[in-house]
Amino acid sequence: MSDSHAAHGHADAPGNNSPFFQHHFVTMTQQASAAKLGMWLFLVQEVLFFSGLFMFYIIFRYLHPDTMLWASEHLLDKTMGGINTVVLLFSSVTMALAVRAGQVGNKQHQVTYLAITIVCACIFLCVKYVEYSHKFHMGALPGHFYSYAGNIPGEPQTFFALYFCLTGLHGIHVIAGIIALLWLMKRSARGDFGPTYYAPLELTGLYWHLVDLVWIFLFPLLYLIH
């Protein structure tokens, strides 16, 4: 793990003449691997952040399996969730290709793939908007605001709290991802990224894939219950 310390020979190490090389590192390789470890630790933090909501899910499903089954089957649209899954998976592959374009230094591809990723993220949010407005319309809302007319067994107001917490927090992450992607697109267009410096692309990519990972689990857990 400590192999990145090159005690000598700095100026000739790859990337050390880059304007983005930071003086407190010895080599660009060290800088890039430090940044990546930092991002992985941040993802660890994200996993445990989401784990609180998944705990809520497990407890609720354990105590009220009937509520969950009924509400999910009748009030969540599998097809909408399925479309969003495909959209998000597609955005993940374009994100990965954008990082690859950074590695090979292809500016045009970076911008194109980032743009497709952003469009996919927006489609995802639009579908979510349709789903949310449907639930607002029906009064299938969390806690005190629940006013759905149907007679759902158990504690439906808590199910919708769970639904909105999980998808809402995920949605906030999607929005944060879009902001980061827009910033990346600006930098890509300026030609900042190349074979020795593409850490921001790579790190945002890791974040974006985590957002995808969360959805990979949310989709069957919320929409495909039997």
Binding site: G15, A32, A96, R100, Q103, V104, P195, T196
Partner: peptide
């Protein structure tokens, strides 16, 4: 910037996956 002779690795020596894999 850095000339990379091997198409499987970038300027920092990190692996580049072929597009096909993605």
């Amino acid at each position: 910037m850095a000339a990379h002779s091997d198409p499987h690795y970038d300027g920092l020596g990190h692996h580049i996956s072929p597009v096909r894999v993605y």
